[in-house]
Design a protein around this nucleic acid. Structure first.
Length: 426
RNA sequence: GCGGGUGUAGCUCAGGUGGUUAGAGCGCCUGGUUGUGGCCCAGGAGGUCGUGGGUUCAAGUCCCAUCACUCGCCCCA
């Protein structure tokens, strides 16, 4: 409050205590990805603006009003954008490095920040952290199932139980175009019952009217035509196969024909994981198939499917589920030195203990013994080593067990060995 | 971009109808043990009451503006 500078709206600091929670979550993600066979992709935070406007879609909210774009200092200036999502960058990298020529199937994952200029609220920030996977090269429903199952696996291993998996098929472009015509016809007939927002959306992206939370829209679209009825045999068979694979895996899901994703590139399978303990921003993650995107960005026509999760929201959901373990950065040893030369000795001894692989610390504020003991306690130190100048002259120090209060005198030469055997013992 | 709520100590919050030295709990510091933590006791530091303006003899309290945070719409992660 007294500080002159504050973090920007929608941007946050993560302090060390909170970072432990992030590390916990990221550890689970990395372990999952190792088991599922995905390699980590690290992408630039900034890409050319055109990559996103072409890849994500001009008409999407993300591109039309939420991007952090700016001109750089080159001549002529180039328009760059802080990535609002990572799929476009991943696809760009895949094309750029000609990955398809070396392997039939690519399995990538990534974790990192993305940026969107939006009004922040619960679970929504201008800088948020995404975890996503991309499975590139397979048109088969088995690939869809693998990706969805990876999402289920992650959510469950985070201890999140109160969630819902929604599934839909958006069809191929020609199927969607036919549906769009039918839907527009239906909506036009009920124009007067729709909200202003939805009427506006009929122009830009009529499918998204189905997604509205406004009561009048929900009522007006209750009997809207379903896209699933517009699927040709191949898309229908694909969808049914995906469902069958999920059924075989015992995964619970609901088919929701109103599930429409906000990004233009999806084809056929679309899905979303909804966190039931979250606020209005309840999409834990979502994704789908994007068979046309790679070609659209100048690569070889290649089918692909992926998802993106919001780590911020996963954390909120895991917390609501009480699944986040209590973690403390416990100290193995705190070294208390009393007197001038003993303080110098404490610095050296702390270093030796650290070099032996244990977590050790000593006082750096010139504090009294009592204050140092308090610090040791506050830091959850298992052991405390105490020595004064006279003791050191005699070649000895006190080793105290902070749980059992027991204290013993130890020869300086034996100190490290004694501590190590105690730490191993428990 | 549009609505609702909230801004008082590091944190969580009290402070009827304006009245003088602005409080509590937790945390922090010191002491009670001239070299021993946690519990307890005593003491202490720490606040331009978000900011600016206005009304008034007098504003944390009333009015206006503004900023920030927060929740929701929209959209998504």
């Amino acid at each position: 409050m007294a500080s002159r500078y504050q973090s920007l709206k929608g941007f946050r600091d993560t302090l060390p205590e909170e970072s432990l929670r992030w590390q916990w979550l990221e550890g689970i993600i990395r372990d999952q990805m190792r088991r599922y066979g995905y390699g980590e992709l690290r992408l630039p935070l900034v890409e050319s603006t055109e990559l996103f406007s072409r890849g994500v879609g001009e008409g999407t909210d993300v591109v039309s009003k939420e991007m952090y774009s700016f001109l750089d200092k080159s001549d002529p200036p180039e328009s760059l954008t802080l990535r609002p999502e990572l799929t476009a960058g991943a696809v760009r990298a895949w094309i750029e490095h000609e990955i398809g020529k070396n392997q039939g199937l690519t399995k990538w994952y990534y974790v990192g920040p993305a940026f969107r200029y939006e009004q922040p609220q619960s679970g929504r920030y201008r800088q948020f952290t995404t975890f996503g996977i991309e499975l590139i090269g397979s048109p088969l429903p088995e690939a869809d199932a693998e990706v969805i199952l990876a999402g289920v696996g992650l959510i469950e291993s985070l201890g999140i139980r109160n969630y819902r998996l929604r599934l839909n098929s958006l069809g191929m472009p020609e199927e969607r175009a036919a549906y769009r015509v039918a839907l527009l016809e239906f909506l036009n007939a009920r124009r007067s019952q729709l909200s202003q927002e939805s009427i506006r959306r009929m122009e830009s992206n009529p499918l998204r009217v189905l997604d509205s939370k406004k009561e009048e829209d929900v009522a007006a679209t209750a009997d809207a035509p379903k896209i699933l009825d517009f699927l040709a045999d191949e898309s229908r068979a694909h969808f049914n196969r995906v469902r069958g694979l999920l059924d075989d895996a015992g995964v619970q899901y609901v088919v929701d024909h109103k599930l429409v994703r906000g990004l233009d590139y999806y084809t056929r399978t679309a899905f979303e994981f909804q966190g039931l303990d979250l606020g209005a921003q309840d999409a834990l993650g979502g994704g789908g198939r994007y068979d046309g995107l790679i070609e659209q960005l100048g690569g070889p026509a290649t089918p692909a499917i992926g998802f993106g999760f919001g780590i911020d929201r996963l954390l909120l959901a895991a917390e609501a589920a009480g699944a986040i373990p209590n973690q403390s950065a416990a100290l193995d040893v705190f070294v208390v030195g009393l007197g001038d030369s003993a303080r110098a000795w404490a610095v050296q001894t702390t270093r030796l203990i650290r070099q032996a692989g244990l977590a050790a610390d000593c006082d750096l504020l010139g504090r009294s013994m009592k204050a140092q003991m308090r610090e040791a306690n506050r830091r959850n130190a298992r052991h405390v080593v105490i020595a004064g100048d006279n003791e050191l002259a005699a070649g000895k120090a006190q080793l105290k067990d902070m749980q059992g209060h027991a204290q013993q005198e130890v020869e300086l030469g034996d100190l490290l060995n004694v501590i190590q055997s105690r730490e191993e013992g428990g």
